[in-house]
Each structure stands twice: as structure tokens, then as C-alpha cells.
Design a protein around this nucleic acid. Structure first.
Lengths: 213, 213
DNA sequence: TATTAAATGTGAATAATGGAACAATTTATG
DNA sequence: CATAAATTGTTCCATTATTCACATTTAATA
């Protein structure tokens, strides 16, 4: 199998979501131009991205949505939802728990939550199971959890991540501004740094303002 | 002024945060190699990035942290905090409000919140001012707000963004899975798509698993 | 003081990415 | 049935981004 460049994986995963939405609306066909419009990309890019994972349509006709979904699913593994957990159930963690539980789709499914504060574990009401932090490794192993959202204070981020790695996760979504290093090879980390994004926006606005002068 | 490539702005804004942390710890000097380690980048990249905005040190010596901070500040505009607002005060929005208010630093400052639900506007306790959604444009203009966090339901995202644009913001941080189009040129959009990131992680883990077979 | 090690600044080479062009193919239409 | 319009697959090219190499400079040390 050829290596798929990361930006392509990135965009295709969005294409997949768009296809889901279109299908919900009863739409059966879509063109690369339409997809590009939804993505904020050119039709060229869309076709080329799809080309990386194979042949999805026939020249002259639009893409068949169901077929394209199958193709992307097969290459990106969206068939079986990956079991996921949230580590850290403070205000942001709880909000993310509620938010992610409300997302109906096939790539992941939140099945457990952890917090070092026993009170929280006992008082939060949610349909999934909650555990104290010292049970992360054990629980991740037992439930075969593959992804973890790290929503703890920055100082505890690396340790929380380590426990998840020990349990055997394959991916970490880091919500702290800390750089997390996975304990083993083959574990992917993606970071959502909210204050970082705001800083970038501030900088972008500033640098272009300057440039216009 | 030369145009600074986006990836460079991106990384430099993280360098800035790292410098802040090091300075808090009383550290005065740092090398490109050390910075690279914190960033997960090579020393080469760090030096080249800094090179884009000027000369920050002298060969043979490490970078002076205070001096480098000044240089980055001057080029990325981190001197005066940009006034920012949060649109949408549901569970996630409220959590983000609390989260961002707790971040002590110079690039931005949250000064207002908006929600279409009057109840929320009246019941949430926070040190900043809250307003009903119909007052977005007016308030953004009056307070000269420059950045907006969009944390509304996906269907309302574009409209909320439009109101902010009408008010005159220069940057939007979009927390919905919708693609937001800025109403005018010169307005930057960055998106944090939580479910999207989870999908990407799921895909990354999967594609490499396949590749190892 | 001479030498070695460590560090930055900077130009060149390499790699990755995005965009464009166009051939091939299908559908619609007169 | 023939033609035109629309659409995909695929190759090629330009641009951008990253990595490397090395000259230069400082500080430390024997």
C-alpha cells in the first residue's frame, strides 16, 4: 500500500463527513467541484486526494456518494468505530464528553472517562462508565480503548498520556498546551491548543495589517 | 516587510509561549536545539524560522530569551492583547470562557460573550459582560473586538460569523464542524473541529497499521 | 594564548505540496 | 445519431516548505 500524505488523510476525513451529511439529505451523487466548495478547496485537489486511495467514479459521471464513502472507509478505517476515552473531567472535559457523545458517526465512540478527583467520578451523570485516574491503564487494556482525549491540567498531561500508552492506545488527542511525547512508536498525537490558535489568529491579523502599510 | 510563511508564524507563536514559560522559571538563555526539542522540531527549523523575522542572537551564544520575545512580539503583534469574544455560551462555550479567562498572557483577552438564549446571558456568572446575540454587531463595533470564538450549533455558525464580520473582527476561531466563509477579505478563519481531529487520529492509526502488514 | 566545542546565521539542495492542463468518458440534447 | 457539455483520472509543472551543510562567532579550557 502506498503511503498517503498526511494532508490528504486530513482532507479525506472531512470529505467523509460531508458525504455523510449529503447522504442524510437523500443526495446520491456529488461532483469534485461541489465537494471542493464545501471543503474550501479546488476541484483539482479533491480529485487528486481521491486518486490517492483509488478510483472512485467514472469519467463523465459524478461520484456515487455511497461508493465513495465505502472507498474512504476502507482506506481510513472508518468502518468499526474506535473505542475512545476522556481523561480529565473538569469543566472542559465534561463539556467535551457531552459534545462527543452527541456526535453520531462511525469513526469513534466514547466509552469511558477518567479523573483523579473521586468526587467528580461519582457525581457526574453520563451514560458511559467513569473511573478514577489510577485505573486508566487497567481499564484501557480491558476495554481495548484505542483513542484518548487528554483534558487534564498541563502539568499532568504527560503522565496521563503515559498511562494511556501503557494501556495500549494508538492515538492521543491533546487539549493541553503542553507538547506530549508518546511513550512508544506507532502512537499518534494531535494537539488542539486553544490559546495557541488564538495567538496564531492574532498574529495573522497583525502581520497582514503591517503588510498593507 | 517580507511575507512570513504561515507555518513559520504558526511555529513562532508556539516558540513565544515556550519562551514565556522558560522566563517564568527564571531561565535567561535558550538554544535552538532546546527550543526544537520543546516544539518537536529540529534546531535547523527553529533557527530558520527566527531568521525570517530578523537576527535574534549572535553566533556562538544561545538566544537571549527576553530579546527573542521582544523580536517575536514585534513581528507577530503580541504586545497589545487583542480584544476577543465568545459567541455561544452552551456547555462547551461556557467551558471555553472559563478556560480562556484563566490564560495569563499577552496575545488576546476575552471581553464579551454572546448567546441567543437570554436565560443563559442572565444566569451565567463571569467577570466579563454578556449580551444577547442580536447585539453582536453593535457590541463588537463599540468595544472594538478583533477576534471571535464561534461555539454555536453548526447550522448557526455562518450567521454568527457574519454578524461578527459586520462588527469588524479580523479573526474567527470556529469550533463547529462547518466550513465558515468570512464575509470580507482580510478576515482569517481557523477551525478547531474536535470530531474531525478524532477521525483523523482514527485514520492515522489505521493507515499505519495497514502499512505495517 | 591557542585550541576545542558549541552555537548562530544563511545559502543551497532536497522533498513535499498544490495547481493546472488535458485526454478520456459519459450524459444530455437537438 | 452526432455534437456539445460536464466530469473524472492522471500526468506534469511551479511553488512552497523542510532539511542539510557550512562559514562564522563566541565561550570555555588547557
Amino acid at each position: 500500500m502506498n503511503k498517503i500524505p498526511f494532508p490528504v488523510i486530513h482532507r479525506l476525513s472531512y470529505v467523509f463527513e460531508i458525504l455523510n451529511k449529503l447522504e442524510e439529505q437523500g443526495i446520491k451523487k456529488v461532483s469534485s467541484a461541489q465537494l471542493g466548495k464545501y471543503l474550501g478547496q479546488t476541484a483539482h485537489t479533491v480529485r487528486k486526494d481521491i486518486h490517492f486511495i483509488g478510483i472512485a467514479g467514472t469519467a463523465g459521471t459524478k461520484y456515487d456518494i455511497a461508493g465513495l464513502k465505502t472507498l474512504i472507509s476502507r482506506h481510513l478505517g472508518f468502518g468499526i468505530p474506535k473505542k475512545s476515552c476522556i481523561v480529565g473531567l473538569g469543566k472542559l472535559g465534561s463539556a467535551l464528553l457531552e459534545y462527543t457523545l452527541a456526535i453520531p458517526q462511525g469513526a469513534f465512540r466514547i466509552v469511558a472517562g477518567f479523573d483523579s478527583n473521586i468526587n467528580r467520578v461519582e457525581t457526574i451523570h453520563t451514560p458511559i462508565e467513569l473511573f478514577p485516574a489510577y485505573r486508566i491503564e487497567e481499564t484501557v487494556k480491558r476495554l481495548q480503548i484505542e483513542l484518548a482525549l487528554i483534558v487534564v491540567p498541563p502539568q499532568q498531561a504527560q503522565e496521563a498520556a503515559d498511562r494511556c500508552c501503557d494501556g495500549g492506545v494508538t492515538g492521543l488527542l491533546n487539549f493541553t498546551p503542553t507538547v506530549i511525547k508518546p511513550k512508544r512508536d506507532g502512537i499518534f498525537v494531535r494537539s488542539i491548543d486553544i490559546s495557541g490558535e488564538l495567538r496564531i489568529l492574532a498574529a495573522l491579523a497583525y502581520t497582514t495589517t503591517i503588510m498593507n502599510e
